[in-house]
Simulated assay, not measured.
Amino acid sequence: MKVRRLGRTALQVSELCLGTMNFGPLTPRQESFDILGDAIAAGVNFIDTADQYGGRLGVGATESLLGEWLAEDRSRRDRIVLATKVHEPMSEDINDRGLSARHIQRACDASLKRLGVDHIDLYQMHHIDRAAPPEEIWQAMDRLIAQGKITYVGSSNFPGWAIAGFNEKAAASHRLGLVCEQSLYNLVERRAELEVIPACQAYGVGVIAWSPLAGGLLAGAPTEPNGRRAGEQASEGARAHAQRLADFAVLCAGLGRSPGVVAIAWLLHQPGVTAAIVGPRRRDQFASLLKASELVLEEAVLSRLDAIFPPCGPAPEAYAW
């Protein structure tokens, strides 16, 4: 498994990041543990979760499951870069959500307890909170860093202007600032190329791509949807992109590779990308996608992929002149 620097930091992370959103509600406990073990054996050292993950089992369930896995063998903690997130509602309490300094402190303490660890390597803001001033957020993050509870701060689902603004505020106070942005990015959804990825490159922020298979569209067929709405969205996506997906399938067949492997390998060839998040539901899915780290795509193949799934183009030329 190849490793890359996390943004401009000296920290080395595997270019495939194991996403755990399915662990617990969709992937049974033992199979989740098996996937985690397979990841470590394959050289994956980057594991991502969030305080809200848990689905039908309730918020926090996935962090608790990870905590049980870590407790089985305490040496595992030192072998992984552990990332979690804060922002999403954790209860009906109006203050048990968002990015207020109060919630950040309390949410971090709760995550540490569920995970059974004394520190989190990467603490990410799960979404932008327009009501929270950056100064308040950085004050809370500084406190957590001083307490030894977190090491790095990242964002997720942030627009380019917020990435720039947060890092300018950080630089003014001689802070390290944001080190990575977890963004929706795949062959079907390339809007991150307009503003988000250029902002990340300008500030030395690593891009962690989530939904690399576009909800299963790029895996050759939609994955089992979680609920009726998700199933309808997957069907609509398949219809909207039918010709592109058919052309993509032909290209992958010519390469002798599965569509999912090619889609993730494409991400790993994109400028600014540190890692792609692989969020399997089953052990066999994870095993098959590990091959993406080994696949080198030639320029001719990358050009064909751009022809099938056209890039947005640079901003503002893509929407102005």
Rank of each mutant, 00 (worst) to 15 (best):
V86M: 01
M21C: 01
M141R: 10
N22R: 11
S155C: 15
L26Y: 09
P159C: 02
D306H: 10
Q182M: 06
R8Y: 08
V59P: 14
R5S: 12
L178E: 09
L36Y: 00
Q243C: 07
D109L: 09
L290W: 04
D38N: 05
A50I: 13
Q147W: 11
L112M: 02
D247F: 01
A287W: 00
H127D: 01
R74D: 09
V273T: 06
A192D: 05
A162D: 11
L255I: 08
A307R: 14
I47P: 00
G165A: 13
G231E: 06
I47C: 07
G254C: 04
D121C: 01
F33V: 10
L18H: 06
P198R: 08
S173P: 08
P314I: 10
A276I: 01
W69R: 03
G256N: 07
F309T: 14
L213R: 02
K113A: 03
A263T: 10
T62H: 10
S75F: 05
Y53D: 00
A300F: 09
L305K: 03
L18A: 04
C180Q: 13
W138Q: 02
A170D: 06
S288V: 14
F23M: 11
G227F: 03
A242M: 06
R239K: 13
C252M: 02
P28K: 04
R76Y: 02
L187P: 04
R239G: 01
G67F: 08
L217H: 08
L302M: 10
L218E: 05
T223S: 14
I128M: 07
P133W: 01
A202D: 13
Y185T: 11
L213Q: 09
Y123E: 08
E181T: 11
V13T: 05
P280H: 10
S32A: 14
Y123M: 08
A246I: 09
